[in-house]
Design a protein around this nucleic acid. Structure first.
Lengths: 251, 251
DNA sequence: ATAGAATAAATTGTCGACAATTGGAACGGA
DNA sequence: TCCGTTCCAATTGTCGACAATTTATTCTAT
């Protein structure tokens, strides 16, 4: 769950008004939809999520939505205030810093573990993934490229064989889009395929320390880029508060 | 949440039969009760949790219990199978290994961070906590001592200032009692007040690397102790399957 | 007597309705 | 015009009831 099939496309406000197909995956559908919406920068942090709206949208009942919101809250993607409702989580700069700090240390550990345990099958998977990532970029499918770029770090964690650490990495990666939700960030250059290649090379050499160092550098770069994006965004829009705001307005 | 006030005492099977005080903390109550029951080794991994029973016990309705179970499931303390219900999570040896591995790397990072940021207030808190821990042990209040011993690691994380990593540490520590749930483990010697003291000393010196090394050693020792406990338990009870079983039998 | 199928009990999943709380709007007074 | 109060719509929280599924029991045939 939370693994995000990335299939549901929100944007229009009523899925299929007549057909109330309340499958057993109703809750899952909402979770996926919200995750996808956040990843696609179609929904802004701080946006209020009204249960009934989501219910209508997903063709499910409020109970399912409530469960979904609870799951999302546990994952740190939405914030729940008693009697106040749910909003897309907002990350303060400090929180963003902490997330990057956590990613750096955990991924470093994961790489160190993986460097010792990587076998041929793993090497092949890594190579194939990086190829796919590169292909998507070359073909101009930026959305997919960005998606794969995020998933690279998850793949590394999975290959390390430690499910606990993998879960942590997944949570942290999923929160990433909360940090850079401005339109500017979408223009950011292809984030680090070269870096990923270098990391994979170091891993193949069995040099976990170097892989960790490269990854740390990579993440620091990302963080810096994010910070400048945020700053420039603030400088541009200024005090009128960011309101290009592509969020689904309550009817 | 999950912070566990440790105040509710389960054991008798009906809280206050007449008074259905369904406060807003009903869900919280169940969560605390289950956490406390797990920590006190009063409930065995694999035990099935029936919603209606919990509801009656806590004087709440099934909805609240369901939410509580979802929270516990996300924390890794219970497992939910669709249409099958909830059980106290069982940790395979492999899972236990992964949890310790995760603790080692994350706490090492936390100690490294803290060594650079520790101020006088923090030093004082650490010292006071270790004193309290020691006092509880000397006074023979083993339950409390064990509780404080676990919390030491959480305190270190909190002092580091990184809430994200702190949350991870909390999750991992809460899962600890799932690993050593046998009666034998209760007899285990006071786990590492000296070790805690030494770690605090290294921190006070600003030597994060040494603190991390000591902590790693400390955790490895704990893991080993656990493993032998489990093995000896298996050797003793043998194939009759562990069934001293102090779990609340379904009426 | 045992294996298998049919039945019955128990438990979970889902839903809609109602109560409680919040946020905003209309209203009135200074 | 501005501030405070009152009222109302909107939203969340909670509950019990019913349907669907699983699990235990009983019955029958071999």
């Amino acid at each position: 769950m939370l693994e995000s099939p990335f299939r549901i496309k929100p944007g229009h406000s009523a899925a299929t008004p007549g057909a109330s197909m309340s499958g057993p995956e109703a809750e899952e559908r909402v979770v996926s939809a919200v995750v996808e919406a956040i990843l696609g920068h179609r929904i802004a942090p701080g946006t209020r999520l009204i249960e009934r709206e989501l219910a209508n949208y997903a063709g499910a009942s409020r109970s399912a939505i409530r469960n979904g919101l609870l799951t999302l809250a546990h994952a740190g993607l939405v914030e729940l205030s008693p009697n106040k409702g749910a909003t897309i989580a907002m990350c303060s700069p400090e929180e963003a810093r902490q997330i990057f700090e956590a990613r750096i240390v955990i991924e470093a550990a994961v790489l160190d573990i993986l460097a010792r345990a990587l076998d041929d099958a793993g090497r092949a998977k890594l190579a194939a993934f990086i190829d796919e990532e590169h292909a998507a970029y070359e073909a101009g499918r930026m959305e997919e490229a960005r998606h794969l770029s995020r998933r690279f770090h998850l793949l590394v964690a999975e290959l390390s064989g430690n499910d606990v650490l993998t879960g942590f990495v997944r949570d942290l990666i999923n929160r990433q889009p909360l940090l850079s939700w401005t339109r500017e960030a979408r223009k950011s250059r292809f984030c680090g395929n070269e870096a990923h290649q270098r990391i994979a090379d170091a891993l193949a050499r069995g040099d976990g320390a170097e892989a960790a160092r490269l990854n740390t550098e990579h993440l620091r770069e990302l963080e810096l880029e994010l910070r400048t994006d945020r700053d420039s965004a603030l400088k541009v829009v200024g005090a009128e508060d960011v309101d290009e705001d592509p969020r689904p307005r309550p009817a």
